[in-house]
C-alpha cells in the first residue's frame, strides 16, 4: 500500500491556510471598518478645540469650539463654548451656547503634532443668558450636540464637525458612541456639517 500521507497533509495544510487567509481577511476588514467608530466616555479626560468651516444646506458655516473638563467634574460635565454661524443670510443662522456635557476619547495613535480623538460635546440652549442663541424648531431646540473627530493635523477634508439640534426631556445623557443621539432626545431639525472644508480640530489630553 502506497502511503498518501505527504499529499493528504499538504492538502490539509492548504485547506487550513485558505481558511486562515479567509478568516483573517474578514476579521481584519471588520477591525479596519470599525476602527474609526470609537467608544467615547463621559468620564475620560480630553480637551477639544477647533475652528473652521463646514458646508450646510444654505452654504458655508463657520464654527469655533472649546471644551475642557476639570477633574472635579465627575459625571460627564464639562466647560467651554460652541459657536456656529451660517454665513450669509441664512435663517436659523447662529449658535452660541455654553458647553455642559462631554464624552471624549483621545487617540492612542496620535497625529505627528500629538492630537487625535473623538468627542461628543453638548451645549445648553436653555441657560437664559441673553447671549445664548440656538435655532428655533418644533419642538424647541433645548440642546445642541457636536460630534468632532480629529484624525489629521491638516483638518480640511479629514477632521469632522457635525452639529445636531436636540429636543431633550431633562438633561441629555452624554453619548457613548460617535454619532449616537441621546436616548432622551429627539432631533427637530436635520443635523449639519461633516468633513471640514477648512480649519482644524484638536482632541488631546489636557496639560
Amino acid at each position: 500500500m502506497t502511503s498518501r500521507f505527504p499529499f493528504r497533509a499538504a492538502r490539509g495544510l492548504a485547506h487550513g491556510m485558505v481558511g486562515v487567509v479567509a478568516i483573517v481577511l474578514i476579521v481584519a476588514g471588520a477591525r479596519i471598518a470599525t476602527a474609526s467608530v470609537s467608544a467615547i466616555s463621559p468620564t475620560a479626560q480630553g480637551a477639544v478645540s477647533g475652528g473652521g468651516t463646514v458646508t450646510n444646506p444654505c452654504g458655508d458655516a463657520s464654527f469655533g469650539l472649546n471644551s475642557v473638563r476639570p477633574n472635579t467634574f465627575p459625571g460627564g460635565q464639562a466647560l467651554g463654548r460652541i459657536n456656529y454661524d451660517r454665513l450669509g443670510s441664512c435663517a436659523n443662522a447662529h449658535v452660541n451656547v455654553p458647553v455642559v456635557l462631554k464624552s471624549v476619547t483621545v487617540s492612542s495613535t496620535p497625529t505627528p503634532n500629538g492630537t487625535g480623538g473623538d468627542a461628543a460635546i453638548i451645549g445648553d440652549c436653555t441657560t437664559g443668558d441673553t447671549n445664548t442663541a440656538c435655532p428655533t424648531g418644533s419642538p424647541p431646540v433645548t440642546h445642541v450636540l457636536v460630534f468632532t473627530r480629529d484624525v489629521a493635523d491638516s483638518g480640511a477634508g479629514q477632521d469632522q464637525f457635525q452639529i445636531h439640534f436636540l429636543n431633550c426631556v431633562g438633561t441629555p445623557t452624554p453619548p457613548t458612541s460617535f454619532g449616537a443621539t441621546p436616548d432622551n432626545c429627539t432631533e427637530p431639525l436635520p443635523f449639519e456639517g461633516g468633513l471640514l472644508t477648512t480649519g482644524n480640530i484638536q482632541v488631546r489630553l489636557p496639560p
Binding site: Q45, P70, T105, P206
Partner: peptide, 16 residues
C-alpha cells in the same frame, strides 16, 4: 488602528 478609548486618568487636568 484608529482611535481607541483612553482610560480615565485622574492625574491629568487637575489644574486645567
Amino acid at each position: 488602528t484608529g482611535i481607541t478609548a483612553a482610560a480615565p486618568s485622574p492625574a491629568v487636568g487637575t489644574t486645567l
